[in-house]
Design a protein around this nucleic acid. Sequence first.
DNA 1: TTGAATTAGTTGCATAACTAACTATATGTC
DNA 2: GACATATAGTTAGTTATGCAACTAATTCAA
Lengths: 150, 150
Amino acid sequence: MSNNQFKRGELYSVINGMATTAVARRLQKNYRQAGLEITIEQWSVLYHLWKEDGLSQQELGIRTFRDKASITRLIDNLEKLGLVTRVASKEDRRINLVYLTEAAIPLQQLTYDLANKTMNEALQNISKEEIEIVKNVFQRVYDNLTSKDI
Amino acid sequence: MSNNQFKRGELYSVINGMATTAVARRLQKNYRQAGLEITIEQWSVLYHLWKEDGLSQQELGIRTFRDKASITRLIDNLEKLGLVTRVASKEDRRINLVYLTEAAIPLQQLTYDLANKTMNEALQNISKEEIEIVKNVFQRVYDNLTSKDI
DNA sequence: TTGAATTAGTTGCATAACTAACTATATGTC
DNA sequence: GACATATAGTTAGTTATGCAACTAATTCAA
């Protein structure tokens, strides 16, 4: 408790993560302006399915840092949009495997391009070295809070 | 668009801001374990009122990076909890000034201590220099996305 | 000074988050 | 084989977010 690296008044801005929130809002805005009717949360699920199709809901939760209930509803909404389907696993009937539909294919390139555009907007005048440090710190903070369960 | 500083596969983890989310979750958990029945969003409003009591909802929105509607509902809930009251401004009757109640006073020290504890847990083995860089990058990303309205 | 534009706040609608309680299936042990 | 435990997913309840449409009060300008 003694190596307190933050003055009290500075705590909030870091915890709040205003910059990440601003990036998410800008990305959502860029999607909307491009006529894309998906949320960034939905996109984050599609993103992992494009990398590897047919993941279980459990696995999607781990990869997107969400709990089971959140994944259930995200998949519900993606199914309503006709972008994914649930397929019960043959090996283990508790498991739903989530597959992309044909309708999801054309979204991949467009959303990648918009994500790149957004990051370029966000990261103007920020060096590669700084970005590496931020990513590294993020990972270590995440590890600090998840490795040991207090 | 040419100075693309991210490989596609890395975009998501940064946008998602998993580390900040983990910090928020841990802070909420620490509050709960201490018997504190407030959310971190509610705390973020109280935090600014402890610094300066009697802010308008508009001003609270700016300081906490939230839109008007979110502030309306956060203040609704804080009022239900008996922690703040709305007082119509004498000068401009459109404005609600938000004041802390007696019940909010004892929460200040406790929540500060828990926030400090949480940050110490999160920031183990992360140097002051790295923290400064992260804060600086956050601010510049925020500025990049809010200074010019695209 | 009166009508237009702006500002502060509220409400409705849709999506999303977490917790906890629940169902159904699978596994492990005696 | 049967009962306890663990795992995958769903549902209910509460809070929160953003956008858009709205009301009420204020300010600006012809």
